[in-house]
Amino acid sequence: MSDAQVSQVSAQPYDALLLLSFGGPEGPEDVVPFLENVTRGRGIPRERLAEVGQHYFLFGGVSPINEQNRELLEALRKDLAAAGVDLPVYWGNRNWAPYLVDTLRELAADGHRRVIVLCTSAYANYSGCRQYRENLAAALAQLADEGVTGLQVDKLRHFYNHPGFVEPMVDHTLTALQELPAELRAGARLAFTTHSIPTALADTSGAPDDPARGRPGGAYVAQHLEVARLVAERVAEATGVAERPWQLVYQSRSGAPHIPWLEPDICDHLAAEHADGAPAVVMVPIGFVSDHMEVKYDLDTQAREVAEGLGLPVARAATVGADPRFAAAVRDLVLERAATERGQRPVRCALGSLGPSHDLCPAGCCPALRGNAPAAAGLD
Results as ranks from 00 to 15, higher is better:
4 A>R: 15
9 V>G: 05
11 A>R: 02
11 A>C: 10
12 Q>Y: 11
13 P>I: 01
14 Y>R: 12
18 L>T: 07
18 L>V: 12
20 L>N: 05
21 S>E: 09
22 F>V: 09
25 P>H: 03
26 E>M: 12
29 E>L: 10
32 V>Y: 09
35 L>H: 05
36 E>D: 13
38 V>K: 01
43 G>A: 10
45 P>T: 07
46 R>P: 00
47 E>F: 00
60 G>T: 07
63 S>R: 03
63 S>W: 02
65 I>E: 03
66 N>Y: 02
69 N>H: 13
74 E>C: 01
75 A>R: 06
77 R>G: 13
81 A>C: 07
84 G>T: 13
93 N>T: 12
99 Y>W: 09
101 V>I: 10
102 D>V: 13
108 A>P: 14
109 A>I: 05
110 D>C: 09
112 H>K: 14
116 I>L: 11
119 C>W: 01
121 S>F: 15
124 A>V: 00
124 A>P: 01
124 A>Q: 11
126 Y>V: 10
132 Y>C: 12
134 E>I: 15
134 E>D: 13
136 L>P: 06
137 A>P: 08
144 A>G: 11
145 D>T: 13
145 D>C: 06
145 D>L: 14
150 G>I: 07
156 L>M: 10
156 L>A: 05
157 R>T: 07
159 F>T: 03
160 Y>I: 12
162 H>V: 05
167 E>L: 10
168 P>T: 00
170 V>E: 04
172 H>P: 06
175 T>M: 12
177 L>W: 02
183 E>Y: 09
184 L>Y: 11
190 L>F: 08
193 T>N: 01
194 T>Q: 12
197 I>W: 04
198 P>R: 08
200 A>T: 09
201 L>W: 07
204 T>S: 13
204 T>A: 13
210 D>V: 08
213 R>T: 04
213 R>K: 08
213 R>V: 04
216 P>S: 10
219 A>M: 06
220 Y>D: 01
226 E>W: 02
229 R>K: 14
229 R>L: 12
238 A>V: 07
241 V>C: 14
244 R>I: 10
245 P>Q: 05
245 P>D: 05
246 W>C: 02
247 Q>C: 09
249 V>F: 04
252 S>R: 11
254 S>E: 01
256 A>T: 14
258 H>A: 11
260 P>T: 15
260 P>E: 15
275 A>T: 09
276 D>W: 11
277 G>E: 05
282 V>C: 08
283 M>S: 03
285 P>R: 04
287 G>W: 02
287 G>M: 06
288 F>E: 02
290 S>Y: 00
293 M>N: 03
296 K>Q: 15
296 K>C: 10
297 Y>H: 15
297 Y>T: 00
302 Q>I: 10
303 A>Q: 04
305 E>S: 12
306 V>D: 03
309 G>Q: 06
314 V>Q: 08
315 A>V: 09
320 V>T: 15
321 G>Q: 08
322 A>P: 01
324 P>Y: 02
327 A>V: 08
328 A>N: 06
331 R>I: 01
334 V>H: 03
335 L>M: 04
336 E>G: 07
336 E>A: 13
340 T>E: 14
342 R>N: 07
343 G>I: 10
346 P>C: 07
349 C>F: 00
351 L>W: 02
354 L>T: 10
357 S>M: 14
360 L>D: 14
361 C>S: 11
363 A>M: 04
364 G>R: 09
367 P>A: 05
368 A>W: 07
377 A>H: 06
